[in-house]
Design a binder for these strands. Structure first.
Length: 581
DNA sequence: GAGTAGCAG
DNA sequence: GATTCTGCTACTC
């Protein structure tokens, strides 16, 4: 038996899809947003259009034979009375998604909610469930109370802890409800969590008008997969046992995962599935491959997996990672709420002949950049609480990227048949883009004219002959603004110390040790600390920043202004003149 | 840092 | 298979 990493079954994770997918991988979030806006649409066949395509549609449309990624003209032929709404501008969907996310985050201690796309969320509810499992009264399970706030005994909801809320896998309708005494601790926690999932789903429906499918288990992988067992508008909890017993009882995880088609497993995309298929089923097999087929293939293990999936370009440790997920082992954390995106991009696609001259390109670049700057202003700008305070950039992207997709793909390289279809160029983002006193259109024109067009010519050196299917303008390489009082004061003292050390190292001259700079740089990455950020450098375009120095009254050290807060906290924490102490 | 690949909805 | 309009991570150079 090959080794796999131990599964961490101490966590409890809930996965929500909003709204529930109705079929295979069917997401109709966009359609739901329109329905919530205009409830009359619910009973009509509704399709959301982007370009020539139905990107998604509601249940009624689906019932009439429409489906995702269908051509508009086919949709109209099949269902002549279909209501078509335009969904190329994602603003509305982005806003709805954020609203739902902030809503669920209210319930979850520590804000442990991660978003996946617009319509999915992972909730790490370990602490809430542990707390509420601990206070269960075994003598009166049927009238339990779930505490949503340990400091407010009235906050929460009543529930019946003798049974799971919603469905389970395996479903056990024929068996009588188990007595609490016979439940394992894990089973009890999952049961309690199922009621929390049900409560959050009902709140989502009552308060926001969105139905959701839920999955409850101990990892993101399992919660997500089990959530799609009972759809729509239901939830499923993956029941223990999670381990294969010595007495031969089968792990429900293996049971559950084994029948899944390999491609359906999150993390196994089309490329990995293809590689696995050719290893296990031979080169040109059309058959659907299940997790069991792969797992039980003779000689299969982490090593063969690595040989199958590894190679140049592959992620490190891919073999072990995939081998683990086939056994239901996924110890990836639910990432903490992120309040800033790591990149923002705007793209549009173009029909034949729509983008075949530099003048057309220029016009489109201005349009794209206008949207991009608007998005930067809504997503990266802190508007300030009162009218007196100045808006402030929360982050400064440092890189501008232009991507295009030539209509027939780039030069076919003969070996690879599949379409690697985007090409891109990046450059430093001009800092005038952050000017708030200039109007968006004229900023966009400058960016397009003075920066993007040059990048475009690098991508497409030929003066003519190209015909582009897509252009995308992005800002990436986001650097959060440091020195913001609100943010800084929220951090713990340990964070301050590490920041302090990093800041000082950067500003200390080490003439004898040439490795010191590199060592300091490495630390930012290891500890995930931002390098010192010269805020002033971003504010003005051509001018050199004038760094104001602060002199510490305790130790006499001089430092740039941004280090002052960290430095004084260093002393407040009881440190004296001697920094080496 | 630049550019690409592959994952996701 | 790729079609839409994104956004994330991680690789190579």
């Amino acid at each position: 038996m090959a080794t796999i990493p131990a599964r961490n079954d101490r966590r409890i994770i809930i996965h929500l899809v909003c709204p529930p997918p109705a079929g295979q991988d069917y997401d109709c979030f966009y359609a739901s947003v329109f329905e919530v806006e205009q409830p009359a649409l619910k009973s009509l066949p509704l399709a959301v259009q982007q370009k020539q395509i139905v990107v998604t549609c509601n249940y009624e449309a689906r019932r009439r034979g429409l489906h995702k990624l269908q051509l508009i003209k086919d949709a109209k032929r099949i269902c002549p009375d279909v209501v078509i709404v335009l969904g190329e501008d994602l603003t509305k969907f982005r806003d709805a998604s954020k609203d739902l996310y902030l809503f669920t985050r209210n319930f979850v201690w520590g804000g442990r909610v991660e978003r996946l796309g617009f319509d999915e969320q992972f909730l790490d509810v370990t602490d809430m469930v542990d707390y509420n499992t601990g206070i269960l009264n075994p003598n009166d399970l049927s009238s339990s109370f779930f505490h949503l706030d340990p400091k407010d005994p009235t906050a929460g909801f009543s529930y019946d802890a003798t049974n799971f809320y919603g469905s389970t896998y395996p479903s056990t309708p024929e068996k009588p409800p188990k007595q609490e005494a016979t439940r394992t601790p894990l089973e009890t926690k999952l049961l309690v969590a199922s009621h929390l999932a049900g409560y959050i789903r009902s709140q989502l429906e009552n308060e926001k008008g969105y139905t959701a499918t839920g999955g409850v288990s101990t990892s993101k992988l399992l919660a997500k997969l089990v959530g799609s067992v009972h759809k729509p508008n239901n939830q499923t909890t993956l029941l223990p046992p999670y381990e294969t017993g010595t007495d031969g009882t089968r792990s429900n995880i293996t049971q559950f995962l084994d029948n899944h088609e390999i491609r359906r497993i999150p993390g196994i995309g089309s490329r990995l599935a293809q590689k696995l298929r050719s290893r296990v089923a031979g080169e040109s097999s059309e058959e659907k491959l299940t997790v069991r087929d792969v797992r039980l293939f003779p000689g299969m293990g982490p090593a063969m997996m690595e040989r199958t999936l590894g190679g140049p370009g592959a992620a490190k440790g891919i073999g072990m990672r995939v081998w683990s997920i086939l056994h239901g082992v996924d110890n990836t954390e639910v990432s903490e709420a992120r309040d800033l995106p790591t990149q923002i991009s705007i793209e549009d696609s173009y029909g034949r002949g729509r983008l075949d001259s530099i003048e057309k390109v220029r016009r489109e670049l201005i349009i794209l950049t206008t949207s991009l700057i608007r998005r930067m202003r809504t997503d990266l700008l802190d508007k300030g609480e009162d009218k007196m305070s100045q808006p402030r950039w929360l982050a400064h992207p440092r890189t501008l990227r232009l991507s295009t997709r030539p209509r027939n793909g780039p030069e076919t390289d003969g070996v690879r048949t599949y379409n690697v279809n985007r090409i891109s160029r990046s450059a430093p983002l001009p800092t005038f883009i952050f000017h708030l006193d200039e109007n968006v259109e004229s900023l966009a024109e400058r960016v397009a004219q003075d920066h993007l067009l040059g990048m475009f010519r690098k991508l497409h050196a030929e003066k003519a002959g190209w015909d582009l299917g897509l252009m995308n303008v992005a800002v990436t390489n986001m650097v959060e603004s440091a020195g913001d009082q609100k943010q800084s004061s929220g951090r713990d003292i340990g964070m301050m110390f590490r920041r302090q050390e990093a800041v000082l190292r950067e500003w200390t001259v080490h003439p004898v040790d040439p490795t010191s700079t590199a060592a300091g740089y490495g630390e930012y990455h290891e500890q995930n600390i931002e390098p010192p950020n010269l805020e002033a450098a971003w504010e003005e375009d051509e001018e050199e920043p004038e760094t104001e120095f602060f002199e510490c009254g305790i130790c006499g050290a001089a430092m740039p202004h941004f280090a002052e807060l960290a430095h004084s906290m260093f002393h407040e924490a009881g440190n004296g003149r001697d920094h080496s102490a």
